[in-house]
């Protein structure tokens, strides 16, 4: 009893930590980490006479070195980049603008607008693709007849069927569908700005647009950053909308081919083209590295420089 003071307390083993973490760790490992590494692994093999043979980085060399593969890849990568640029230039500014308007307390029917703008986000790609194909259809679409009604029929063209406009049209459809997400995130961030800050600004004579520009926007910048990175990851994984509206061949003339559709055609095959799992895995790996690089740049170069305010 007397010696109890100097003796270190025997630490209880905290089994419960491991027990509580186990389900998440196991499930995440089984459905995310293992398939990820399996894909990276598969990219290092090639099927030769029915056998999987280790070929090192030969598949990557083919993807970047063979003129045909490289042309398809760079085409898909550029299309993907353009898809992302359209989202960054259209979706996110509109999202911020809508959030700013919604957070204005004098606006009536706020709940209705918020819900109406957010609803397309929860629709399936199949529905969105199909509805917009119908709207833009040169034969039965609403778009040509509406333009006709105001005498601007000549402005209509079959956008989804033209090489120059198909990808931009699809990107704008995607923007229409997903603009609710940046709006909601930024709206939430705007609501968390304390009233005192706004009142103080008003006392200093900052109102309206200036107030938004100088006070609110800087305060929600970290959220805008998150929205940007979500857009990046989402866009570089995009596949569904193109597949639904243009098919796996991503026409016209591969003008809407994204990395996702390129991967799909290669991995699973299409029509008479048999699937090539190894080249497919190679493309999937490259997509992973691109997204990893993008996220890393954000995390290490941008996020660390963003200034945060605590209230």
């Amino acid at each position: 009893m007397t010696s109890g003071v100097g003796e270190p307390l025997k630490r209880a083993r905290r089994w419960h930590i491991a027990v509580f973490l186990a389900p998440a760790v196991l499930i995440y490992t089984a459905i995310m980490i293992v398939p990820l590494f399996a894909t990276l692994f598969l990219a290092l093999f090639q099927r030769v006479e029915g056998q999987q043979i280790f070929v090192g980085i030969a598949n990557f060399a083919t993807l970047f070195g063979d003129p045909r593969w490289a042309a398809s890849f760079w085409n898909a990568l550029w299309n993907n980049t353009w898809f992302f640029i359209v989202h960054m230039l259209v979706q996110n500014p509109i999202g911020i603008l809508l959030a700013a308007i919604l957070s204005n307390p004098s606006l009536r029917l706020r709940g209705f607008y918020r819900t109406a703008i957010f609803i397309p986000t929860i629709l399936s790609f199949v529905i969105v693709g199909f509805v917009w194909k119908l709207i833009l259809s040169p034969l039965w679409g609403v778009a040509p007849s509406m333009l006709d009604a105001i005498g601007l029929r000549h402005l209509f063209s079959p956008w989804l069927g033209q090489e120059g406009s198909a990808l931009t049209a699809l990107a704008l459809i995607s923007v229409w569908q997903f603009v609710g997400i940046p709006m909601m995130l930024i709206y939430a961030a705007l609501l968390s700005i304390p009233d005192e800050v706004i009142e103080a600004a008003e006392c200093d004579g900052l109102t309206g647009f200036k107030q938004f520009w100088k006070i609110q926007l800087p305060l929600v910048l970290p959220t805008v950053g998150i929205v940007g990175i979500l857009t990046f990851v989402g866009n570089f994984n995009a596949f569904d909308l193109v597949y639904v509206s243009q098919g796996a061949q991503a026409g016209p003339n591969y003008a809407t081919d994204l990395l996702g559709t390129f991967l799909y055609r290669t991995f699973f095959g299409f029509q008479l083209q048999l699937g090539d799992r190894n080249m497919g895995a190679t493309i999937a790996s490259v997509m992973f590295f691109i997204i990893l690089a993008g996220v890393s740049i954000y995390l290490f170069l941008i996020q660390t420089r963003l200034r945060r305010y605590q209230f």
């Binding site: 259809s137 040169p138 989804l160 069927g161 033209q162």
Partner: peptide
Amino acid sequence: LGDGFEAQS
């Protein structure tokens, strides 16, 4: 072909 056949499915 019809008007806008480029986008006709």
